[in-house]
Design a binder for these strands. Structure first.
Length: 264
DNA sequence: ATGGCTGGTAGAACCAGA
């Protein structure tokens, strides 16, 4: 027998402002698990009703007022395990759960890191690097088969950005960030599911700025969102797409959802 | 190098996103 699991990662940029397109997405795509980042809502104000009406009765929330915040909503059993503070400052940027088959799902919102790629003048950039380092330490000890997904805020490959040369000094694509991300990936042998299904050098973006006049026409995108899995789960991943259309829905998030299908 | 847009919350000539 085999079970399929359809899991989505989506930086939603306010779950309340986006509740109508989240509902549309769930009705059209019918994922089993939706992992959200930047929910921007306290747990006691999370809009549970829509999710429960559609059968998503397992809700695991780690929110805070104003900024950040992550959540997982599931229509299959998913039990909270951990909420790690990889920034060591109390911000709500991670929630971890476990499926009934023992596979862990780790949903993370890694800090963007501010404007200037120098930790001496921009503490936020240092926090981002430190966050990656703590995740690297955590990955080295990790034994459980795990799906790690979310907004990693780094686009590592040349084909992950609209213009490699122009973005070399822009936070999200600097060589130091790419190297830091690689150390995290190597610490557990994380498999990059995006590039397993859409190999380099094919264009692959998950985020387009709000500031473009026409995001689709200019297509100045970056691949900031990722789905990684433990080596032993690579064979279980059977499909992966970036749902670019949702970036063009009314009042969209600036990130598109990433849809991954597994067979266990 | 600059500017462009969005949401939350306060009630901003705000902050943060990336």
């Amino acid at each position: 027998m085999s079970d399929t699991l359809k899991i989505v990662s989506w930086n939603i940029n306010s779950v309340r402002a986006r509740i109508d397109i989240v509902e549309r997405f769930l009705r059209e795509e019918e994922p089993d698990i939706l992992c959200l980042q930047e929910t921007k809502v306290r747990d006691d104000q999370f809009p549970e009703g829509m999710f429960r009406r559609l059968g998503y009765n397992h809700l695991i929330l780690n929110g805070q007022p104003m900024h950040h915040g992550v959540a997982m909503v599931s229509r299959v059993p998913l039990h909270e395990q951990t909420r790690n503070d990889w920034q060591a400052n109390g911000e709500a940027r991670h929630i971890g759960g476990i499926l009934s088959n023992g596979v862990r799902v780790e949903n993370v919102y890694i800090p963007a890191g501010g404007e200037i790629a120098d930790r001496e003048v921009n503490p936020k950039f240092g926090q981002k690097l430190d966050f990656y380092q703590r995740m690297t330490d955590w990955s080295q000890d990790l034994k459980t088969p795990t799906i790690l997904l979310g907004d990693f805020n780094i686009a590592p490959l040349e084909s992950d950005v609209w213009n490699h040369k122009q973005l070399l000094k822009v936070v999200s694509h600097t060589p130091l960030e790419v190297e830091t991300m690689k150390k995290l990936q190597d610490a557990h042998g994380w498999v990059d599911i995006g590039r397993k299904f859409i190999p380099d050098p094919e264009r692959l973006f998950t985020w387009w700025s709000y500031r473009a006049r026409d995001w689709r026409k200019s297509d100045k995108g970056r691949r900031l969102d990722h789905v990684w899995v433990s080596p032993e789960l690579e064979k279980n991943a059977v499909g992966h797409v970036v749902h670019e259309d949702a970036r063009g829905w009314s009042k969209p998030s600036d990130h598109a959802p990433l849809i991954t299908e597994f067979k266990f």
